[in-house]
Write a protein that binds this DNA or RNA. Structure first.
Lengths: 224, 224
DNA sequence: TCAATTTCTGACCGCATGGCCAGAAATTTA
DNA sequence: TAAATTTCTGGCCATGCGGTCAGAAATTGA
């Protein structure tokens, strides 16, 4: 068992091919893949995506270069599995915090707060993810995880906002712009934190929540 | 006359060396430099920073590769001059619109609006700038135009916010977080527009202004 | 006009990259 | 134990990169 991408089929632009279930992997396979992914995260976070070569990652993992090719179809698959792994952890954490929350204000607070809380304990992963999102391209030359791939998040956040508007909890505004701006605020909160390690991420998240609470809530006053 | 970076001196991390004044350049020199910078913008915007090689840029400009080396000290200088040129145009435009404005609300509206207005007519430049900011690194491996280089903008925006707070026009909030978030909203507005050409940039800018007006203005109501 | 100077070309260099593979080593299976 | 299979190594390859250079071409100036 080597990779989970069919080398013959044209994977094209859509989702990746079906993953090989972990149960079909040997122990060594699982250990090596985890080890290599961890090394990739470290190297990408430390030296940037462009300088994170197979050789660098292999050296960091303490194996020879060929091992990566043996366990992954190529650099592309390695990166995609890396993103998946980080996202799974984050997604599960946020979803569990978000479950059972009602009201847009509470949703906003828990959403921003839980993302920040999780990431504060996974700083290296966060830095690597940022590098991958802005640098990793498909063979066509398009960003693999560009703004277009945020569409799912935007759509979901928009739904939350629209519900709030219908209940009269929120003022009238363009939900798409608000969703894009919220995501931008979160992304740059992390980017700022990565380059300013002493920055108080929790406080920033609280301020950001306040910011969007004031920006979205219904208000009797008119505008200037 | 070749480049404006002293090949012997260690340029280090600071600002680039003094520029050679245009008056000391021959006509051919000026024309070629402009032509090459334009080609660089086109190629970077179209194919991404990583694939914008000297060969690609030279081909686009219709000259041989050596010409770039002849007129610029290296790829680094070419990129820095490109950024300078785009920024000069934007800076001059925004500054002229901002001159004489009083009050934070007006400042916010004019700031966001004028940046968007200028960029709407310089789409390719905008795309190239985005690529450069996220990819171009110094020899040390740091991003040449990373978040750290936004410090000047943050500081200035913070000042505007603090004035508004002192006049009682704005509520109490962390000015640093607000400045970072505003810049994030503007940056992602452009990023969204670059990938969604039909998106209404002017309307987005208006909504973004509203967003931050609601987020910052003083308010008698308490919070939830 | 003709030498001095600027500008340009295209081949070439050293280097790093992702991927490949023959064969060695380790492990599993019978 | 011995064969079959999985896992690993280290060198090799083609490719593309930024940069250099000798010499050709064009321009300038006396």
């Amino acid at each position: 068992m080597r990779s989970e991408i069919d080398p013959s089929g044209q994977s094209g632009k859509g989702e990746s091919a079906k993953a090989t279930p972990d149960s079909e992997r040997s122990l060594i396979e699982k250990v090596r893949r985890a080890q290599i992914i961890e090394a990739a995260i470290d190297v990408i976070a430390a030296r940037g995506f462009a300088k994170a070569s197979m050789a660098q990652i292999a050296e960091r993992a303490g194996v020879s270069k060929g091992v990566i090719s043996y366990h992954f179809a190529g650099k592309g698959e390695l990166i995609e599995r890396t993103v998946e792994q980080v996202y799974e952890g984050l997604g599960a954490f946020v979803a569990s915090r978000l479950a059972g929350q009602t009201g847009t204000a509470a949703w906003l607070r828990v959403y921003v707060g839980s993302v920040a809380e999780y990431m504060s304990g996974h700083r290296t992963q966060l830095a690597a993810l940022g590098e991958i999102f802005t640098h990793f391209r498909t063979d066509d030359g398009d960003l693999r995880y560009g703004i277009a791939s945020s569409e799912r998040i935007y759509t979901h956040v928009e739904e939350v906002f629209r519900e709030g508007q219908q209940r009269g909890e929120l003022r009238a505004f363009d939900t798409r712009v608000m969703a894009v701006s919220l995501q931008a605020g979160i992304d740059d909160m992390f980017a700022y934190w990565v380059t300013h390690p002493d920055h108080d991420l929790t406080a920033h998240a609280r301020e950001l929540t306040d910011l969007f609470w004031h920006a979205t809530r219904a208000d009797s006053r008119g505008k200037s």
